[in-house]
Design a binder for these strands. Structure first.
Lengths: 207, 207
DNA sequence: TGTACATCAGTGAACGCGCGTTCACTGATGTAC
DNA sequence: TGTACATCAGTGAACGCGCGTTCACTGATGTAC
């Protein structure tokens, strides 16, 4: 969609050709999604309510149907945006390093930091599945983009490498998900130390 | 509450002194909980509905208030019963073995088997927290009873032992929770192998 | 530049559904005399 | 053993709330001539 102008210079605004109506649409959509996030953060995915969002915007609920076909479509967009956000974050963390081990450590660190800063976002994609809601097919591709940076080129058959990466991932998730869900609360240790130990010892164990 | 009779023999029925009314109460309570489980299994914890349960029992909803003070109380009992069930299972698995390593492996195996057989039960206590619902204090004690069998008496300071046990736990949870939430679906590997490898390699790494 | 027209954001009423919970009540059932 | 009484499971109406979604509509706004 983004087009360059005649001299090949990227314009400052993202969608420069859009008329005022399209620009307005984009703004409203963004505002809806923002309020939706506040809701999901406070009440979980099942608490997402179009009527409540409309109320907060000082608008009637049917008006939202100009911007989203249904509640499920809005939820889907939220979920996909989480996948995208996390994929970019993880790719950036991995891309900034050369050595495989550094890459893995940087990625793991970025993952936890992000999860702690956005617990509900993390839980939205890795937590209890929303009953009756099926993620769109594109979510699977994005999930793989998140997983890919954990695939490092260590010696071994493709199967072994996959297994190592998977295990790295499940270990990170084990610590992060328990912490994010509050299961470490009141326990006599520092979760960030536990995580750091887990990351370094796992990376050190790789061939 | 359970009393022995004069000769010290455990009577067959659990609550022998209970009159017919109490017996009936217990039966109805059990039936309510059973139907509640079906609901939680199908729609998640937030889908638990007293009216729906009453309907299935061929009863009006207010009648349920003879047996449970509120929806939250019913949910609390469900959650506590999961903790209890899992604690007993884990204790039994650990108690049947002598050597520490065997104990850990048996416990880990029992944990995964149970989680796969009861995914919604597992997610009810280790998944995304139900927004607005606070677990009762006794849940914490029970959570520790589940964790305790993972504490083996390996050499090291109490801190090191705690750390090792925690890491064992987070690793098991990492694999189990991703599998139970369906994140391994369509991936080219066998989850049970992944889990078995993770268990044996972790136990082998202990001092 | 001014005006007529088409587009479309937003309204308000309504539908049908679900929920938890309260309350005064009926009527069956167990129990004490 | 028979009867009177107290207990208490379950009813039905109601309250107030929330939800997603549809529909015919109004009226502002951008656009084409």
């Amino acid at each position: 969609m983004a087009t360059k102008n005649v001299r090949g210079i990227e314009p400052a605004v993202v969608e420069p050709v859009a008329g005022p109506r399209e620009r307005y649409r984009a703004q409203v959509r963004a505002e809806v999604q923002e309020l939706a996030w506040v809701q999901v953060t406070q009440t979980g995915a099942s608490g997402l309510s179009l009527k409540a969002i409309a109320k907060q915007m000082g608008i009637t609920a049917p008006a939202l149907y100009r911007y989203f076909a249904s509640r499920d479509e809005l939820l889907t967009e939220l979920i996909l945006s989480v996948y995208r956000e996390l994929a970019e974050l993880v790719e950036a963390a991995a891309g900034a390093r050369d050595a495989d081990r550094d890459k893995l450590i940087a990625t793991a660190t970025a993952l936890r930091d992000w999860a702690l800063a956005n617990p509900q976002r993390y839980l939205l994609i890795y937590g209890t599945p929303v009953p009756g809601y099926a993620a769109p097919p594109s979510a699977t591709e994005l999930a793989q983009r998140i997983f890919a940076p954990l695939l490092a080129s260590f010696p071994g058959t493709p199967d072994q490498v996959l297994r190592q990466s998977l295990t790295f991932w499940t270990r990170l998730h084990g610590v992060i998900s328990l912490e994010v869900a509050g299961h470490f609360r009141g326990m006599p240790f520092d979760p960030s130390e536990l995580y750091a130990d887990e990351v370094t010892s796992t990376v050190a164990g790789l061939p």
